[in-house]
């Protein structure tokens, strides 16, 4: 199956391990991901003010690229898969809001005069939705190295599940990540904070606030017995993982816990290269080696 794949800026740099493990785990599932040849930053996060038009240009431009890919028969259908939860939310919301408002769509087309008109045919899906659609039996059949004995806590973050209308799962009782972890052979450690905000963009100018929110999430997972936490968003990964040093400044007793992208565990369990663990902070290799998985 050939599908259009929209990576987002951060996937090519700070979240390269997410991007690489996405490609390798998708390959195992028989999905060929194809990026548009020309794409731009999606302009995360979605602009909530109802009169905003400018912030729609960036996401809609990307959707036009996907329509062009369809015309050139580079991909099998009109879906675009994203991995970054923030890009997913931004593209999806812009798509639906523009399609529902012909007036706004007209303005968008006017400003983007040099582009072909967006026909509104593209639908935005997140990789987890795609995986769920394949069926868990199919998914399990690709596992060559079950992650036995690894205690993993899921972390959804905000924009995968909320607002309710755009979420990929029930925001109160999501299950897709837990199902995925189990299907990989690992043990799910539930965390009541699995869908609480990590602090997101407060990491830029209100570091301590973001560190505090992230700390709560990490500590809940640790107290429940988790050895590893999985994320689906580069900003969540940054706040929960890279910023653990910042957390330690405010919480002396906090001991680090590794945080990885869920696709990295998929690539590991599917026996594929490109797990990208060297890029993760803090280092997850020790825990994985102790479990005999590396």
């Amino acid at each position: 199956m050939k599908l259009a794949y929209y990576p987002g800026c951060t996937m090519k740099t700070d979240a390269k391990n997410f991007d690489e493990s996405t490609y390798s785990s998708a390959e195992a599932l028989g999905i060929e991901l194809i990026e548009p040849t020309r794409w731009n930053c999606c302009g995360t996060v979605h602009a909530l003010a109802k009169d905003n038009v400018m912030n729609y240009l960036a996401p809609i431009r990307n959707l036009i690229r996907v329509e062009q890919m369809n015309e050139e028969e580079l991909v099998d259908d009109k879906r675009v898969v994203t991995q970054c939860a923030m890009c997913y939310n931004t593209l999806k919301r812009a798509n639906l809001a523009a399609k529902a408002d012909p007036d706004k769509m007209g303005k968008i087309r006017d400003i983007m005069e040099k582009e072909p008109n967006y026909q509104g045919s593209v639908s935005v899906v997140h990789m987890l939705e795609l995986i769920k659609g394949l069926g868990w039996d199919e998914f399990k059949s690709k596992v060559v190295k079950p992650l036995d004995g690894l205690k993993v806590s899921p972390y959804y973050g905000c924009l995968l599940l909320r607002p309710r209308e755009y979420g990929i799962d029930d925001p109160d009782h999501p299950t897709v990540m837990e199902d995925l972890i189990e299907a990989l052979g690992a043990e799910v450690v539930d965390n009541p904070y699995k869908a609480k905000c990590c602090g997101a963009y407060h990491a830029v100018h209100m570091k301590e606030v973001a560190a505090d929110l992230s700390h709560r999430i990490l500590r809940q997972a640790q107290e429940a017995g988790a050895e590893l936490i999985v994320t689906a968003c580069p900003l969540c990964q940054f706040n929960l993982g890279d910023r653990q040093d910042e957390i330690k400044k405010h919480q002396r007793e906090f001991e680090g816990i590794p945080v990885v992208y869920y696709t990295q565990l998929m690539a590991l369990a599917f026996g594929k290269e490109g797990t990208g663990f060297e890029q993760n902070v803090p280092d997850p290799v020790r825990v994985l080696e102790e479990k005999g998985l590396l």
Partner: peptide, 16 residues
């Protein structure tokens, strides 16, 4: 700070 922060953080921060 600019060297450390991923683009996604700065982009979303400036949006809001």
């Amino acid at each position: 700070e600019l060297r450390e922060l991923p683009q996604i953080a700065i982009i979303s921060n400036q949006r809001k």
